[in-house]
Amino acid sequence: MLIGYARVSTEDQTPLPQSEALKAAGCVEIHEEQASGGNRSRPVLARALERIGKGDTLVVVRIDRLARSLSHLLEVIERLEAKGAFFRSLMDPIDTASAQGKFTLQVLGAAAELERALIRERTRAGLASARSKGRVGGNPGLRARDPAALRKVRLARQDGYMQRLADTAQEWVPHVRRLRPDMAWEDILRIINAPLPHDRRWTQSRLIRAVNAYVRDGFLPVTVLGRAARRATDDRLPTIVAAIKGADPDITLQAICDRLEAMRERTPRGRTRWQPSSVRMLLQRAERLGLLQPAEPPVTGAT
């Protein structure tokens, strides 16, 4: 399904031309919004992103109708990819469902990283030059505690933080979206961290801060912040195994054993080493509890 998004900046403008173009492109739903492009907290865009499901495509007339910064554009596309959805701009060569569109997106991502590197290099060179001439480097507005300068720095830091979150979104967003609030933060954290190298693992406070930021900007529903329901003690292991299997339906029993050992999860008998037979038993229990869809029976030829 094609879902359109049209945005204008002021009340004097009309989204009608955009909506007509989106309708002509085949969009069955069109979400119209009046908001500044620099404002990431857009309720209509948030609802449109939440509405999109697997296989759907978010369509805009031009990229600037969706985002004014490359980091915000990539952030939205990361969320769509996490849901198995796509992005298309009618007047720009971006369609993430096509090979060419994906290549264009990779070029944009590389350009964004190059731009950040150049800005850092120019900043360091400017500060070094100022120090060599006896001047104090930095922003005069910040030294004077000017409110406008402080606000710009705050927004820039927030933009940089959201870009860093977008770079790691595939590690944690799908788990949070699928498992919260049914599973406690502690267990979700261990599922996220199990396949990650030690220097990239998340802490609970860092994860919750990231989730709050994504909820604030509409990339995750507010329900993920709800209190987790208390589960019976004997349901905990089936829930964890079902979560691992749900994240990767093709994962093998032995790989699940390795994941549980990396999480330092003990077997039902309290042992540290897991066997595929124990995992199979827990998966069957998860199916009976309704935590996991039953496996499809193998297709056999006609006799």
Score class of each variant (00 low, 15 high):
295 A>R: 12
291 L>F: 09
237 L>I: 02
240 I>D: 02
244 I>Y: 06
257 C>I: 06
259 R>M: 12
294 P>K: 07
269 R>G: 09
233 T>E: 13
270 G>Y: 01
288 R>Y: 09
279 V>T: 12
236 R>Q: 04
260 L>D: 04
260 L>H: 04
286 A>I: 06
252 T>F: 06
243 A>E: 00
246 G>C: 07
299 V>W: 12
280 R>D: 09
278 S>T: 00
215 V>W: 10
285 R>K: 14
235 D>Q: 15
295 A>K: 10
297 P>W: 11
232 A>W: 02
257 C>M: 13
227 R>E: 13
239 T>K: 02
234 D>R: 01
247 A>I: 02
259 R>P: 04
277 S>P: 05
242 A>N: 12
276 P>N: 08
246 G>R: 04
298 P>N: 03
242 A>Q: 09
258 D>I: 03
247 A>E: 11
241 V>L: 03
250 D>L: 14
224 V>F: 05
238 P>V: 07
215 V>Q: 13
225 L>R: 13
280 R>E: 14
223 T>D: 10
283 L>M: 15
252 T>R: 08
288 R>Q: 14
282 L>H: 15
294 P>E: 05
236 R>E: 13
243 A>M: 01
277 S>M: 11
294 P>W: 09
277 S>V: 09
289 L>E: 01
219 F>N: 05
279 V>Y: 00
274 W>C: 00
292 L>Y: 12
254 Q>T: 14
299 V>S: 14
264 R>P: 04
287 E>S: 14
253 L>M: 10
245 K>C: 05
297 P>C: 06
288 R>D: 15
240 I>F: 01
220 L>C: 14
281 M>V: 14
249 P>A: 11
221 P>K: 13
233 T>D: 09
238 P>D: 09
275 Q>P: 02
224 V>H: 05
223 T>Q: 10
276 P>K: 11
257 C>E: 09
232 A>M: 08
221 P>A: 11
292 L>W: 11
252 T>W: 11
218 G>H: 03
246 G>P: 00
262 A>R: 03
296 E>A: 10
231 R>S: 00
242 A>I: 11
226 G>T: 07
257 C>F: 05
255 A>E: 04
281 M>L: 14
269 R>I: 01
220 L>P: 04
262 A>T: 00
224 V>N: 03
215 V>M: 10
269 R>L: 11
245 K>E: 08
288 R>T: 15
259 R>V: 03
275 Q>T: 06
286 A>L: 07
284 Q>A: 13
273 R>G: 05
292 L>I: 09
